[in-house]
Design a protein around this nucleic acid. Structure first.
Lengths: 142, 142
DNA sequence: TGCGACAAAATCGTGCGCGATATATTGTGG
DNA sequence: CCACAATATATCGCGCACGATTTTGTCGCA
């Protein structure tokens, strides 16, 4: 019983698809001064402003060891502000600045560009999305 | 026209699935002294020994700036040897050591464990694999 | 022969991702 | 009220990824 070839590993397809997705975002986000994970943080904050580090981390699957430096860079860039919560001084609340809010309009074209790059129409895209999410959930449960 | 919510982004599903996949491999590979990208290199070398850095990079979608340090770590660990090609001294050929070959048997259980973790049977797994590979290819072409 | 285009690795700097640990604050039982 | 566990964030170290550049080697061709 030997190993399947590399190209028969679904993990490798996933790995490559993730790399290709990041590469597709890069030319769209770079002019805005954003990286891909930073863009994900902004998506969350546009949905709901003023979240804690832990709250953001829970949704993205990241811990403070990744988020703290990332958020500091975003603060440095002027997109968010980090303030210790008055109610619970252990927490740091992340809020959008004007510039951070402005990026929402400035990046409005991005989702459409990416969808186009996938070469899929909405129904197929949605179906694949569901399957990948389900795979992720089963892997996390195992 | 505002942004879709984070969870409606297929990129985020892919991002999470990739993270979950890496996390699933970690406890299987760590006892062998391997990281996930290093395991991918070994899969290639088990298929065909003695490949160039560029050859490996072409198959994995990585350049020498990532591979050179990774391969040096694998050499340090005793799994591969790096030798300048005599025919073309620009090239470095990567060959398996006895220990590197030995890992093939030592990791024979890994693919089965991962497949089990996906919670999918072969037909469904294969179908999803095809779709993800196709997505990757379309993203790379765009 | 020797020069300039090209090619393969390596090097450097930055930004994730994550295990392990540290620090500070809050909540709780005695 | 006070030790002590629990919680939230930060810090540290290491290993990818990748853009940009450098170094070394090969090849074509005058």
């Amino acid at each position: 019983m030997t190993h399947p070839a590399l190209n028969d590993h679904i993990c490798f397809a996933l790995y490559g698809a993730h790399q290709a997705m990041s590469a597709a975002y890069k030319p769209l986000l770079e002019p805005l001064g954003l990286t891909y994970p930073q863009y994900l943080v902004l998506l969350l904050l546009w949905e709901q402003d003023d979240q804690t580090v832990g709250g953001i981390g829970g949704k993205l699957g990241l811990q403070s060891n990744t988020l703290t430096p990332l958020l500091k860079r975003m603060e440095q860039a002027g997109f968010v502000k980090r303030t210790r919560s008055a109610a619970d001084e252990r927490q740091v609340r992340i809020g959008l600045t004007e510039a951070g809010r402005g990026l929402q309009a400035a990046s409005a074209h991005v989702p459409g560009c990416i969808m186009k790059a996938t070469g899929l129409e909405m129904p197929a895209l949605h179906a694949l999305h569901q399957q990948i999410s389900a795979l992720r959930d089963r892997l996390q449960d195992s």
